[in-house]
Design a protein around this nucleic acid. Structure first.
Lengths: 167, 167
DNA sequence: ACAAACTTTCAATAATTACTGAAAGTTTAG
DNA sequence: CTAAACTTTCAGTAATTATTGAAAGTTTGT
């Protein structure tokens, strides 16, 4: 496997993994491209490499900036805008975890709290609903707490010591 | 909010959260329905509650069984099949984590390993590709390890002690 | 062996989601 | 102020994914 094959394979695999962290294919591919690039890329560069339209590129770059993992770099004397991504995988993981929590987990926690707080009318059905949504609420909240702890931690959170601790 | 409103809200919220753990809406909703039910439900019951077709119900129940979180219960003397889901949230979390790892993370780790193993021809581009995909490989593998440790652990893995440990 | 009761399959269709490309908008240089 | 160089927006379209429903398949009781 040569450089170009490897690059292609990486970009497309990372793209299809997008679903895992809740973003679309093009978005993930753009990020992947920037992630292995040795220099900032222009919109033109990205369009050409990924064979996607200007509009698509623009919109997905915007989203990546909203997520906080891609930055616009203005090069003095150049009209074009250039883009770079966070290069540190740990930092990347932190940002993604934090964003997903905010966008998806928090709203669910809110609903679980509401639902589990309905009045207990004594029927088995109501009791079960309350019990199960409460359990889900606790689990989700604790998991979310973990994510936040990890996300705000300055030192490496994925370390051998965590693994060791977990037996 | 009364029982029926709460039930509806829970089922639809849990359904839309499906994406978070990589399954579709109907599948998540069926699981949600079983999760708060006090007794096993038949296909008929599910179709009626969720207003979805027989085919859809059948296919999604099958998938839930493939994931290992829904079980077919045959009630003696009854022709119909009845379904139940894992009721313990911790166990549910374990199973889901394990399945997602197997289905999605493992294949990516494999590709990252391949890509990061290309021959270093000395160019900056190749070096960057190797460096970055290696970093991603390590991160992904360690995260996956964590998931597995958690998934095979018999005692509660999401506990206050883990949180405490993490500062 | 037959028929009733049920489940599964799958081609057709609907719903959702992503992508394009050209027009409108913005910024900068002169 | 104007034009060139660039970016953003968004209506239309394409691609993907989910859903239906009816036919085919299976199981069970008599």
């Amino acid at each position: 496997m040569n450089y170009n094959e490897a690059k292609l394979k990486f970009v497309s695999t990372w793209g299809s993994l997008g679903t895992l962290w809740g973003i679309n294919k093009a978005m993930a591919q753009i990020q992947a491209l920037l992630f292995i690039s040795t220099k900032p890329l222009s919109m033109e560069d990205i369009m050409e490499e990924l064979k996607i339209s200007r509009g698509n590129t623009s919109m997905n770059l915007r989203q990546l900036m909203d997520w906080g993992i891609v930055t616009k770099n203005i090069i003095p004397g150049e009209r074009k805008e250039y883009f770079t991504t966070e290069k540190d995988v740990q930092e990347l993981a932190r940002v993604i975890a934090k964003e997903r929590s905010r966008r998806e987990i928090q709203p669910v926690i809110k609903v679980l709290k509401e639902v589990s707080a309905i009045e207990d009318d004594g029927t088995a059905e109501t009791r079960e609903l309350i019990k199960q949504t409460k359990a889900l609420h606790d689990l989700t909240e604790t998991a979310d707490d973990m994510i936040h702890k990890m996300a705000t931690q300055k030192q490496n959170w994925i370390t051998k010591s965590v693994l060791k601790f977990m037996k």
